[in-house]
Write a protein that binds this DNA or RNA. Structure first.
Length: 205
DNA sequence: AGCCCGATGTCCT
DNA sequence: GGACATCGGGCTA
């Protein structure tokens, strides 16, 4: 994916990434991939829900300040990873959280990664329908933080199929109740009818 | 379908 | 010391 595609505000990039593919090459050469069907935009310094709110710049948040297309993988709740794509411009800490993908290639391996911890087969529907689930399925952890997704052959993005506005739904973001007025902003994008998103889309009243 | 809760490490006050 | 961009299991309906 060209860096120019990601060199836009995170809300534009979040919408544009629907239909694109997230790809991963394992050490043994196996390729895993999935189509992005759910994203959230985090709009940098002004966004109370963003790790970079107020321009907070630390070791952890640094990837969001790096050039567009840099991966930001963070560890949360003591056991999970979540993956973002930095957007906008260098030194402008926007990011797009990848919340769900439709598994395409390497599904057997994804099932192994997801099932390994519990010794119980994970349902296909539950393979990648959440930000930490897709990281576990794709074997994405802190070792893949700060990767340049525009040039890496280990983790990268590809332009995929066009998703029309009619197929797209927007809702508030998940799990950020403590973000003041920003909690209500519709900064989550989903492919409405996709069975692969983390929670069923419901039109807002 | 919901609600509750425990697991568990890291970041920031 | 509290919060956390989560998940899965267990419960009540």
């Amino acid at each position: 994916m060209a860096r120019s595609f990601l060199s836009r505000p995170a809300d534009e990039v979040a919408r544009a990434l629907l239909g694109c593919r997230l790809c991963r090459r394992l050490d043994d050469g196996t390729v895993l991939s999935g189509m992005i069907v759910e994203t959230e935009a985090y709009l940098g310094p002004e966004d109370q829900a963003a790790h970079s709110f107020g321009g907070r710049r630390t070791e952890r948040t640094e990837p969001m300040f790096m050039r567009p297309g840099t991966s930001y993988v963070y560890f949360t709740y003591g056991m999970h990873y979540c993956m973002n794509v930095s957007a906008a411009a260098e030194n402008v800490p926007h990011a797009v959280l990848l919340r769900a993908i439709e598994p395409l290639e390497g599904i057997e391996r994804m099932l192994e990664f997801r099932s390994a911890s519990r010794g119980k087969l994970v349902r296909l529907q539950d393979l990648c329908n959440g930000p930490a689930k897709l990281c576990q399925a794709m074997s994405i952890d802190r070792g893949l933080n700060r990767v340049d997704l525009c040039s890496s052959d280990v983790l990268w993005l590809e332009r995929g199929k066009k998703v029309s506005d009619l197929e797209v739904g927007q809702t508030p973001r998940i799990g950020i109740a403590n973000a003041g007025t920003w909690a209500d902003r519709p900064l989550r994008w989903v492919v409405r009818e996709s069975p692969w998103i983390s929670r069923r889309f419901r039109a807002q009243s």
